[in-house]
Design a protein around this nucleic acid. Sequence first.
DNA 1: ACAAAAGTGTTCCAGGTACACCCATGG
DNA 2: CCATGGGTGTACCTGGAACACTTTTGT
Lengths: 240, 240
Amino acid sequence: MPRRKLSATTSLADFKVGVDNVIFSVDSQQNRLLVLLVLRDEEPFMGQWSLPGTLVRQGETLEAAAYRMLAEKIRVENLYLEQLYSFGGPNRDPRESSYSVRYLTVSYFALVRYAEAELIADGVSGIAWYPMQQVPALGFDHNQILEYGYRRLRNKLEYSPVAFEVLPELFTLSDLYQLYTTVLGENFSDYSNFRSRLLKLRFLHDTGVKVSRGAGRPASLYRFDAEAFAPHKDKPMVFI
Amino acid sequence: MPRRKLSATTSLADFKVGVDNVIFSVDSQQNRLLVLLVLRDEEPFMGQWSLPGTLVRQGETLEAAAYRMLAEKIRVENLYLEQLYSFGGPNRDPRESSYSVRYLTVSYFALVRYAEAELIADGVSGIAWYPMQQVPALGFDHNQILEYGYRRLRNKLEYSPVAFEVLPELFTLSDLYQLYTTVLGENFSDYSNFRSRLLKLRFLHDTGVKVSRGAGRPASLYRFDAEAFAPHKDKPMVFI
DNA sequence: ACAAAAGTGTTCCAGGTACACCCATGG
DNA sequence: CCATGGGTGTACCTGGAACACTTTTGT
């Protein structure tokens, strides 16, 4: 016989739900992968860096909360956003001890264009792009969430065209290659092989326009063609 | 200047958090992929089939809730469980309208051995293995969750050794092959190629024991060696 | 003229595909 | 002895890895 009602000793938990965003961008000038961190100006973890997050409001979608948070911190036109993972164990937020509330967070993973992303300095709390190698100890379980997001980023790069959300509309093949090497490491592929493999797939169109950057032969600007990419959707290892 | 407090019009949402499990198993006799459904015996969606789910209790981990739910429905020794996705938009649960509470669900994906899984009939509510092709309209947004879990299952099969969680300790290579074809479809690979590719990876050990099933040459029983598999972890497309 | 960056081509080899074929058992 | 399923082998080909080489610019 199933119990219809729970006894008092096993009552349901009450939750506040937050979203925490792992927002990446790539500084192609300095070849660094960056993550957006905020300096907390209230308890808990006041004075410590953490992922930007917010609590979900009445009537608000999870994704809407993630977008709202993002819009509060940076102005950006193009971005890629997807849900990552949910962390909801008890005692992951110090505020839980005082009140009888649990805090569950749904983490989101975002990728924005570094060049066009304008940080919104609100004067009080700090906000900054941190190179992935220099991320400090974060508040809450945010180092774990960040690690999770980093893994997802590397996976995404391999089989999905997220890179083109971060690159400008027109880009050179070296731009693309450098993006991959800064995220994935130096030894994922030879440049010329990377180049010919991608071109053979025929979803990168040469605009014919050349651009010169200091010494060396000028490079062609390419454009990503989403429709031409479609057949490769869900196929593994398109880019590597 | 950041607002420290929210105005009354944008107050935080209060949540109950549930877990919904997409529990798969494979009937290798009949070559069918099965999913566990329960017949709801209370509102909302009374009398309709849905994924088995439960609400998270005080002090309980999300994963613990998922395991508790599973243990209430089936007795099983070996199983694979991982978090899938969280659905938390407003109005996804009819109960929300009456009270000022939102229902967020963290879905979990599970794989169990069909042969050893014993359904716990509690006499009142129905519970059954449904072939994936015959799944009816489910309560809540559970068809969407199921679709999500199905996608995850197919991906998992390709690069992770989940199959061996579902197969018995000793199995023939045809058992393995049939598992893959029933989940992935007929045309994913030739049997003999599938066979030689896997054997070359050297994590399947031939026990030498032969087993005969009706007509035809008897097959060798193999055992999966988790340690020998370790180097292939995180490598893509191990099985296809 | 030379260095630096972009782009092309070539050779070699692993690994996948599509088969044909052999083996052992039940009926 | 033949159908059935298990198991082995081979010939072909694609596609990646490594690397040499050419082209076009800045200084």
